[in-house]
Design a binder for these strands. Sequence first.
DNA 1: GTGGTCTAGACCACT
DNA 2: GTGGTCTAGACCACA
Lengths: 128, 128, 128, 128
Amino acid sequence: MMIDKSSAKPYYEQIVLLIKEQVLQGILQPGEQIASVREMARQLLMNPNTVSKAYKMLEMQGVIVTVKGRGTYIAEQQTTVRDDAKVAQVKQKIQELVLEARYLSVDETEITKWVTEQYEGSQTNAND
Amino acid sequence: MMIDKSSAKPYYEQIVLLIKEQVLQGILQPGEQIASVREMARQLLMNPNTVSKAYKMLEMQGVIVTVKGRGTYIAEQQTTVRDDAKVAQVKQKIQELVLEARYLSVDETEITKWVTEQYEGSQTNAND
Amino acid sequence: MMIDKSSAKPYYEQIVLLIKEQVLQGILQPGEQIASVREMARQLLMNPNTVSKAYKMLEMQGVIVTVKGRGTYIAEQQTTVRDDAKVAQVKQKIQELVLEARYLSVDETEITKWVTEQYEGSQTNAND
Amino acid sequence: MMIDKSSAKPYYEQIVLLIKEQVLQGILQPGEQIASVREMARQLLMNPNTVSKAYKMLEMQGVIVTVKGRGTYIAEQQTTVRDDAKVAQVKQKIQELVLEARYLSVDETEITKWVTEQYEGSQTNAND
DNA sequence: GTGGTCTAGACCACT
DNA sequence: GTGGTCTAGACCACA
């Protein structure tokens, strides 16, 4: 549960990534309840509006489900529908970053290694 | 020479990517003169200041060299210094996108394919 | 915090130098927040865009880190990569100025003294 | 006699430096006649206006002297008056570059070496 | 003609 | 409140 206050990445995006990563790693289990917006805001020392925004995005992406009056839970089933439009967007972004990497003299095998790393376990990353 | 005006990506960043891609693909050759700021602005139907901003970024990255009163040229030599801090940033960003891809049910081999594509020819993609 | 409005040096470059010098002198500490773009613009009696341009350059050089909605901070760690191409450029420029100095009957020891001065404390100079 | 067409430095400045360096190195001797504006322009493949501008600057700095109808000569005596205002300017510029160098992890001894190099012989420099 | 700097002011995203 | 992007238009320096 670490938010990098000195990162250029918006807080709400950091929260989204945090939750998603913990789900993929199995730290957060489907059905499990997570902290309420206000509780999470207290824990992370940030504005509830920011946490709320993050939760909304996670809900839109089908990662969590909020039940009015009961709380917020990790979604039972991951949506297995493949949204081709979104996939195309991600592909686009990745390829742009690969372009950046090429300009930084990074070769193909190294990038492939990064991808594999992310698919295996998952290690915490510094930086932004 | 296509700029997506409806993309969330700033115009100037799109121009930067465009030029960089064309250089890596060999469409633009070292020493070659590229369109002037005003000419490019005319072609892309945008403000010269925006194009100028893109050119400035490209110059700082060593992709082009610009000379007052003479014009703008593709840099003769690419600086091949590997800036580890920047590499770490790109790695970080790529891994975050890989995380997103996993949520969209994209498997590792497909992403690897995207990377390879970018290293071989390079085809243009829509979206942002 | 002095900007020479009659200098040939662009405002934004003067700001860049100002901040860099204060960082090297320890007046500005890593992690410390600096004046917002608008605030700095008010203080220096100039357009916020100009200050913004300076901040952008400082960010690209890794001196500061700027976060949308939160503010601008002195970077925690300086990137210590030595970019030989940039070093060569600076060397080139310095040697040209040394040439000029020789024509002004300045001897080698005096220039060496200037260099040392800059490495020790650092005192502000007028002119451009 | 080399002008770097791909340098960001204005042509006229390059000419000025060229002449000054050759004088300091003794390649051009006091009293020696140099090529006329038009002749020099032909040799360097550039606009006579550009060469003319360079010669005017050299004359202002007392490096050359132009005699109407007779031609242009290397000045007999170097002005030994030390112009403190100009010296202050050069000092200022050098110290700014030293600041840049420090940010590029260059230490004091290396810069001092550059200065010494320029005072001894004088070698041609690539880059800009 | 080229690029560079600066201002003024609009609109957007994040906290 | 913060910074970011974009436009419009003025003025300057270089070729």
